[in-house]
Design a protein around this nucleic acid. Structure first.
Length: 653
DNA sequence: AAAAAAT
């Protein structure tokens, strides 16, 4: 008790006016917000502060009314010449200490004595590694040919047209310079469409294939918009940070990665990006926040902690981005996300701009729930029904968070690219290890210089990851592992070691399935297949990135029978060779899991795909009785929705 | 049944 974080806060705060910080106080349950009156809601941790005349809450309010949030792009306000942070220059902006680099330990010292240090160059890391040339080539060498003829589906009111070049969009000089530094020559398809939509101030639900540049698609417009409409005066001495943008992601490593990218995009713009995630000492993160934050990248748990400590307030949030949005709104995360988005002090939808991004978007999460298609405009009415339906507890509606949004699908949602060669092999559990060994041997023999190409091996359990890693290491294959039972230091060290090639085999649970951009992964092995085809899509998407090719091998046996049908269909759609035995499995399964049959796996069959905006579904107008009508699999997702028909193949199919 | 996410 003595060493609880609450005590630590109390001890650390020299101010006499510190909020009472007993655990019971912070654990206060927020009153349930009424839908209309959210603006008046003051979270418990801010209430006592309002009495102080210099209170953060009190000074914060005018800043918002000075810069009313609008649905239109604000008038352009040029950033102060020469400089940043609205007048003071980048030199004064204390940088993050040069990051936890190769040392492997936490950088807890922080560098408080070095406050005038120049903003650390986020591009420096690229340049001082031997792989710099390689990386540069890679960035400039994005295989845009692979991006030709992609079916693109947009819907919603007044969809802004796509752009063909970055130059067409006025992102501002500083951002353009960073785009040049990143060696991005032209926007990827998702960027071409999403950036103008976002710059127009519209909410967005965007689906695009793995490795197609989603991070930049939501970061560029956020940074650009912040530059155009800088925040009002910052209160000095406040211990509460008021970020303007919040980017949430489902894993810590993904947050770290988004932060690293966002720092590059925001370099010397004066826009400050901070990351906060669990498993790491909170003190450095608190210091970073205290120095000021415009864009906060976070995992949900740590953010809730920071909100409870009143070290972060969401009152000034203008932009909210959920990366891997379907995952964020899935069962495990949804309550936390709802709490952050709906029950703290974030402006409600319509008063902020919200963007959801993912490579997969099950219709359930788009908003099709148990046959009821719910659009936000009729939402309140429908919600009454939903909330009173006994089986409808825990419904997840992405549209809860969106206002008059635009739906964007680049490529067929949830499909994989045929740049990835997918193989499925029937392997009994007892044979998996030796089979993996065979693959690794063959790979090593055929590889250049007898070196092991980077191979990412997915297993089902954390224990299984450890034991396979141990076995591989014992058998002469340098391997490491990443999973949720390892310390955060170990996790990050494992990722570094894998990226550098020191341990060219990484055994991972699903913690590494989504979003991680690891260059040069040649081979993804699904040692244990996931139960959910969407997870499969994300896993194999760790290879074949930026238009490059890759290989994915899956070990299939009886225990994966429930995946057979969706796997076979996915492979067929991606122009992969489907083994006959797999088709048999698929056929044998289809009577029980397909159509309107079992429904045990809510993602089975046609309901999985959000290849199109559910608002356009014809059943939307039929009152929602026949919701399994798309159950014939992929057909439901392609009924004239794409600019290319269902039979048309492309690199993005 | 498992994984992830706060301490």
């Amino acid at each position: 008790m003595r060493t609880s974080w609450a005590d630590a806060v109390a001890n650390a705060d020299s101010s006499a006016a510190v909020t009472s910080a007993s655990p019971s106080n912070v654990a206060t349950v927020a009153p349930s917000p009424s839908r209309g009156g959210r603006a008046a809601y003051v979270p418990p941790h801010l209430r006592s502060r309002q009495q102080s005349s210099e209170s953060s809450a009190a000074t914060a309010a005018p800043a918002i009314s000075d810069a009313p949030l609008t649905r239109q792009p604000p008038p352009f306000v040029a950033p102060p010449a020469g400089g940043s942070r609205w007048g003071s220059g980048p030199i004064r902006d204390p940088s993050r200490p040069s990051a936890r680099g190769g040392s492997g330990g936490w950088n807890t010292r922080g560098g408080g004595w070095d406050r005038r240090e120049r903003e650390a160059n986020p591009f420096a890391k690229d340049d001082d590694t031997s792989e710099a040339a390689c990386d540069s080539q890679e960035n400039s060498g994005i295989n845009f040919d692979a991006y030709e003829d992609i079916p693109v589906d947009t819907s919603g009111e007044n969809v802004p047209p796509p752009v063909n070049t970055f130059a067409e969009i006025d992102l501002g000089d500083a951002l353009n310079e960073n785009i040049r530094r990143c060696k991005y020559v032209k926007p990827t398809p998702v960027q071409r469409h999403a950036i103008p939509i976002s710059l127009a101030g519209r909410d967005l639900m965007a689906c695009a294939q793995t490795g197609s540049g989603k991070t930049a698609a939501f970061c560029f417009p956020i940074i650009s918009a912040i530059l155009r409409q800088p925040p009002g005066q910052r209160q000095r001495g406040s211990r509460t940070a008021f970020p303007l943008a919040l980017i949430l992601s489902p894993t810590r490593e993904l947050s770290v990665q988004i932060h690293e990218e966002a720092r590059k995009f925001a370099f010397q713009t004066g826009v400050r990006v901070v990351v906060a995630y669990g498993g790491a000492p909170i003190n450095q993160q608190l210091r970073d926040l205290e120095r000021g934050v415009d864009i906060l990248v976070a995992t949900p748990g740590r953010l809730v902690d920071l909100l409870e400590r009143a070290r972060v307030s969401l009152q000034h949030i203008r932009y909210l981005a959920l990366d891997e949005a379907d995952r964020m709104l899935d069962m495990g995360f949804e309550p936390q996300i709802r709490r952050i988005v709906e029950q703290m002090d974030m402006p409600p939808r319509g008063q902020r701009q919200t963007m959801l991004f993912s490579a997969t978007f099950p219709k359930e999460i788009q908003g099709l729930v148990y046959g009821l298609l719910v659009e936000h405009s009729i939402d309140d009415q429908a919600r009454v029904i939903l909330n009173h339906g006994p089986q409808l507890e825990g419904t997840r509606l992405a549209s809860d968070f969106l206002y008059n949004y635009i739906f964007l699908a680049v490529g067929r949602v949830g499909s994989s690219t045929d740049l990835i060669v997918q193989r499925v092999e029937f392997v009994l559990d007892s044979d998996k290890r030796s089979h993996l060994m065979d693959l690794l041997h063959a790979q090593r023999d055929s590889g250049a210089h007898g070196k092991q190409a980077l191979t990412l091996v997915f297993v089902e359990t954390k224990r299984g990851a450890d034991s396979l890693e141990h076995w591989l290491s014992m058998n002469g294959f340098p391997a490491t592992t990443i999973h949720g039972d390892r310390t955060q230091q170990e996790r990050e060290a494992a990722l570094r070691s894998f990226k550098s090639g020191a341990t060219p085999i990484l055994v991972a649970t699903d913690v590494a399935a989504r979003g991680l951009d690891i260059p040069h992964v040649a081979h993804v092995v699904n040692f244990d297949l996931p139960n959910d085809i969407d997870d499969y899509v994300h896993r194999i998407g760790r290879t074949g990135r930026a238009g490059k090719s890759g290989l994915a091998t899956a070990f299939f046996n009886d225990s994966n029978a429930s995946l057979a049908r969706s796997l076979a269909e996915l492979m067929q759609e991606s122009n992969q060779e489907v083994p006959q035995w797999l088709s048999h499995y698929a056929a044998a399964r289809s009577y029980s899991s397909g159509g309107g049959g079992g429904g045990r796996n809510r993602r089975s069959g046609g309901a999985r795909f959000g290849g199109r905006d559910f608002r356009r579904d014809s059943s939307y107008n039929r009152g929602g009785g026949d919701y399994y009508n798309g159950g014939s699999g992929y057909g439901g997702g392609s009924t004239g929705a794409s600019s290319a028909g269902p039979g048309v193949t492309s690199a993005w199919d």
